[in-house]
């Protein structure tokens, strides 16, 4: 519930319209029965979405009780016996789980270094393209792969870098054989990062371009008058404008540290092996749905969810400490 107390103000700040707390009518003067009557169409409008969330988001939250049960699908949640913390004890002594955690963290760390900065550099490059038509065209092209499914992206990579792919066949003509990036565990990190860059780095620039568009041109003009060259302008004007966005995205990424391209990895886990491709989410899927160890998998998933929640809240706290707005603020 601690999560719940803070995000409210997000929404009011997100409004970008009238500040809600100031402009909202004095709430307690109007009796609630009158407000209920006055706002009944608003409530009816919200109802379908709330109903869907209640059933498909909140009921499963309660369904996490199976993590404390010796759950069997034939007996059901209501009849399965409770076993205390036994499933959680099994998780933390399970070497496969610990490997999955380790793989997840390695992928997150690697992508933080080799994926995260790419959109920033791309945005700076594109921002320096001054011809409007050319710029829009390039934008449309680099956004496009974001809208392809992971199946398509992985298949394209397989057709180019796989054992029967384009690169392998060219190398074979040149006398080299045995090139296959898709099944090589040693280069797997590079492969999935390249896939992520191809798919999403272009889309990632949109938020940086928006931030760059808000920079007041007079700042540049003034710094030129003060004798600042290109690089000093970038350092003292452009990058400070990007700072809040970069920090916001870092927070979101940190909160998502335990979530690494589930669809992307589940497509390639078989080809490259679990040693490098088993992450927390795939672990939960294989242990639960495939092996039928439901309670064990649910416990693993729950631990992941709770740690992720703590990470977002922690990262946001950290942002406040260094004087940034973060994702949400205290009311």
């Amino acid at each position: 519930m601690s999560a719940a107390t803070s995000p409210v103000s997000t929404s009011s700040r997100a409004a970008a319209g009238p500040p809600s707390s100031a402009s909202s009518p004095p709430r307690h003067k109007v009796p609630w029965t009158t407000r209920l009557k006055r706002d009944r169409s608003l409530l009816i409008m919200v109802a379908p979405a709330v109903l869907l969330l209640a059933v498909f988001a909140y009921v499963p939250m309660l369904g996490n009780v199976v993590a404390w049960q010796d759950y069997s699908p034939y007996v059901g949640i209501l009849q399965s016996p409770f076993v205390g913390w036994a499933n959680f004890e099994r998780i933390f002594t399970n070497p496969l789980f610990l490997d999955a955690v380790l793989n997840t963290l390695i992928i997150t760390a690697f992508q933080l270094v080799f994926f995260f900065p790419v959109p920033i550099v791309l945005a700076l490059l594109l921002n320096s393209v001054l011809t409007p038509g050319l710029r829009t065209t390039i934008q449309s092209i680099v956004y496009l792969p974001h809208f392809f499914s992971w199946v398509i992206v992985v298949t394209i990579f397989q057709q180019i870098f796989g054992g029967a792919g384009l690169v392998a066949s060219r190398l074979r003509e040149a006398g080299y054989s045995g090139f296959d990036l898709m099944t090589n565990p040693d280069t797997f990190l590079l492969l999935i990062t390249a896939q992520s860059v191809w798919k999403d780095a272009g889309w990632g620039i949109i938020i940086f371009l928006a931030a760059l568009a808000t920079v007041d041109p007079q700042l540049y003009e003034a710094s030129v008058v003060d004798g600042a060259g290109r690089w000093r302008r970038m350092w003292h004007v452009t990058l400070p404008a990007l700072r809040p966005v970069i920090i916001l995205l870092l927070i979101l990424r940190l909160g998502d540290a335990l979530t690494v391209g589930f669809e992307q990895l589940i497509l390639q886990r078989g080809a490259v092996g679990t040693e490098v491709a088993e992450v927390l989410d795939t672990f939960v899927y294989y242990q639960g749905v495939v092996n039928g160890d439901w309670a064990f998998a649910a416990a693993a998933g729950l631990v992941k969810g709770l740690v992720s929640l703590a990470l977002v809240l922690g990262a946001n706290k950290l942002a406040h400490l260094v004087g940034e707005a973060g994702v949400y603020q205290k009311a």
Partner: peptide
Amino acid sequence: FGAGLIPTYL
């Protein structure tokens, strides 16, 4: 906070 894969599947 997401409920998780297993409870959703169940």
